[in-house]
Design a protein around this nucleic acid. Structure first.
Lengths: 208, 208
DNA sequence: TGTACATCAGTGAACGCGCGTTCACTGATGTAC
DNA sequence: TGTACATCAGTGAACGCGCGTTCACTGATGTAC
């Protein structure tokens, strides 16, 4: 599973690995990918360069591991959150509204680590593959949930429409994060964004 | 206007400046911001480090100038393309469809230079300001055009809806560019994207 | 339980590299008389 | 028109810096008998 690290064999080094990962994640979250240098991680985690390279083959291994963790967590969240059993008795409209609100909160609460990796996507095969895998997994879960309400969707091709909806919602939220609080002059409030995105997606899917 | 360059006084240096800008733009377009180093620009433009620093105070000045040019070009394009006079006699539906198709082509043809700058947005005030200014300008022009058809829009707050539509369309296309050809496993074809985005926005605005 | 030794873990100075930038210099252009 | 000189333009070696990474070393832990 954790293929790119040299697995720790003693509790001591397990702890060091944890400290390194925590520090790296913190730096990534607070200051972005550019600030994530090995000297910085080492300093922040109160370890040493040698310890770092005893755990990771190179800097890329650290990035891969962080990305893998973030992807796995995201997939797990989607699987749990989109479980059809959770929505029994609720209207399709409510499902869509819940999905939108959930997405807004997820992207808004703290900038996802995911966003920090975007710079690496063009270059590296591993990152692109992991990102695709994650997107597909989320898509499949949302799809599975919404297709149980297929008869409530008036869009001629519900499957395509669901994929498109996911794409549009995540893109809008990602962009909003990137722009920091400045898109069209003002940062739109969460409530308003949820309302408008909800309206848009409900209309697009043709929810009765 | 070109505030951050030391203006060339002879035709000779004007030409050198042009070569530097062309090379920089090419590198940015083809290989992204990371590849844009001063040694690289100097080599590609067949000039020299000294020439570079005779024109630009520092590397940031080059980036600012490229960004300024791209923003100005984008604003000019929006002003020309969203001129209400161009759409006389056309239905509101056609306007929206034209807008979406135009946006897809614009982002798709060649990755906009704009996307290359996203990494610098968080850090630098100048970039953020310029980007905001550009977004506002595009928004105002689209707004001016669509508000001439206000009575055709059923959305309770057309102004807000237009701003939201612009945001969603650009975000979706930006994300598509970033993901390179890999979003939900497959890159959606232009035609299909135009169709679905068009359907979504038409429905959202409530075009009759 | 105690001792010897192999392995694991941790340290931090040092290296090579490519970056942004400077600078001493040579050559081209414009200006004054 | 010709000459002298100031200024503009261009060159490329060299500098300092921070990065990713290596390595020789010390200390801690586990294992064998």
């Amino acid at each position: 599973m954790l293929r790119w690290v040299n697995a720790p064999l003693q509790a001591r080094s397990e702890k060091t690995l944890g400290k390194i990962l925590d520090a790296a994640e913190k730096i990534l979250l607070e200051e972005g990918l550019d600030a994530l240098t090995v000297p910085r991680v080492v300093k922040e985690s109160k370890t040493s360069t040698g310890s770092f390279y005893a755990r990771f083959d190179d800097k890329m291994s650290l990035l891969s591991m962080l990305h893998e963790r973030a992807c796995a967590q995201t997939i797990a969240t989607a699987e749990a959150g989109f479980d059809p059993a959770l929505f029994e008795g609720q209207s399709t409209r409510e499902i869509v509204e819940t999905f939108v609100a959930f997405a807004v909160k997820l992207f808004g609460a703290r900038r996802s680590i995911m966003n920090s990796f975007s710079a690496a996507f063009g270059t590296d095969k591993g990152f692109a593959d992991r990102r695709t895998k994650t997107a597909v997994a989320i898509g499949q879960n949302l799809m599975k949930l919404l297709l149980t309400r297929r008869k409530d969707l008036r869009h001629p091709d519900p499957q395509r429409a669901i994929a498109m909806s996911l794409r549009v919602v995540t893109a809008t939220l990602e962009q909003r994060n990137g722009l920091q609080r400045n898109a069209l002059g003002v940062r739109v409030a969460d409530d308003l964004l949820i309302e408008e995105l909800g309206r848009m997606i409900l209309g697009y899917l043709g929810v009765k």
